[in-house]
Design a protein around this nucleic acid. Structure first.
Lengths: 236, 236
DNA sequence: ACCTGAACACCGTTCAAGT
DNA sequence: ACCTGAACACCGTTCAAGT
């Protein structure tokens, strides 16, 4: 209502707040990738000075962590419906898949997640659900507790490998196509004298779709978690 | 011998070359962290213009990848001594430990490794050794081939979590102490109503030394790899 | 308390020009 | 072919000054 003549016909400059900053960062990240969602750009989009952001967020890393947490929150299914016995495993896979979907949906998010320390409430809820589902599956609680980290870490890492880099840049570092072909070339041209096993297994190394590898990976982790006791020895 | 009056009494400016650039980058990374080993700083240390580096390296990511590969190469034991039967497992653990040591020795390297696509010859040799040792251990070759990636990825990720950030900056993002205490706080203060399993397992989640977790992690991966068939079905 | 402009101290990469 | 300086297009963060 106040007759502020905001630039560019913005629908009236909203009051600055942590929530608004995060929302705008998400908007930019969706469009241009998280790498482009810099303090300066976010400030500009909010029609304010970059220094103003520091009233609400500590620094870029903290802002990006908050963005990750917010997005994970929006992907988490509402509070856990009771798990039909036997369904824990497919529920767990679905949960990890929706986490992976978020990472894929925002260019640059997976790579950032790899390097951020995610302590937001939604990330904790994700861990909580994973632990709960593993316990439902008969996995010893202490192993489930450690295992959740392992699951999240691996899903994040494989999303980072296959997700879009940051934008429309040609040959951006981290371009998955370029990376993949660099890898195939390297493996295919491995010298059997220096890397005999790799040369012999080249087809195996390069085989499988991302989905197949991801399914296998989760299977590996769950089987390993179920069969490997945590040190200190609770009754297994 | 030529009487070039190089600045600052440098011991005679050596000819620029890819090797020299990598060596200087390593020197800077050891001292100040890989994040500080920027094109500009490397050029300055070599007493040349930053644009000159682009004759020998494509960009920063490629340079850092080369540095990682070089360092991994220096840590790899000489060509595999024949493995005493039964020793494959401790050999494999030792191999991963020396890889982890490299990541710990250079501030910022582990975090960078997480995000680089490592296609250098020494990284391939590391994979080769891992595959060979797993095959020695009776693991089906196709699983060993996929498993090597998983092992390297997890060791890299846990090194990144616990390794020094880039320098002497106070509270640098990625400071492992700050990150850890943020995590403990978050887990300890988890609301039992919203994250019941996490709250119940808080002690378990936070327990264990890095070494214990790392040993457990490798155990999980190996057990899982050994028991989880790759899709497509080779005779297991 | 909140917000701002300006400054400080950096980045990666390209390019016209030189040798 | 190799090397250079200078430029272009950015960064994160801080700080004195305003309201």
């Amino acid at each position: 209502m106040t007759p502020t003549n905001s630039r560019r016909e913005r629908p009236a400059k909203p009051a600055l707040s942590r929530e608004w900053i995060i929302a705008e960062t998400i908007a930019i990240a969706r469009r241009d990738g998280l790498d482009r969602a810099t303090m300066r750009r976010v400030a500009q989009a909010l029609d304010t000075g970059q220094s103003s952001l520091y009233v609400y967020v500590a620094n870029t890393a903290e802002l990006h962590t908050a963005v990750l947490d917010e997005l994970v929150g929006s992907a988490l299914p509402e509070s856990g419906a009771p798990v039909a016995s036997g369904a824990w495993r497919s529920d767990l896979e679905a949960l990890l898949a929706s986490y992976a979907d978020v990472l894929f949906a925002f260019p640059g998010l997976a790579r950032a997640a790899l390097v951020l320390t995610p302590t937001g409430p939604n990330m904790l809820r994700l861990h909580d659900r994973l632990i709960g589902l593993m316990i439902d599956g008969g996995i010893e609680p202490a192993r489930a507790a450690w295992g959740a980290t392992l699951l999240v870490q691996n899903v994040t890492a494989s999303a980072a490998e296959h997700s879009t880099p940051t934008s429309t840049d040609i040959d951006a570092p981290g371009d998955p196509d370029a990376d993949w072909s660099a890898l195939t070339d390297a493996v295919r041209s491995a010298d059997p004298a220096v890397a005999p096993h790799l040369a012999a297994q080249a087809d195996a190394v390069l085989s499988g779709t991302p989905a197949q590898r991801s399914t296998w990976m989760i299977g590996v982790l769950l089987a390993g978690i179920a069969s490997t006791p945590v040190p200190g020895g609770t009754i297994s």
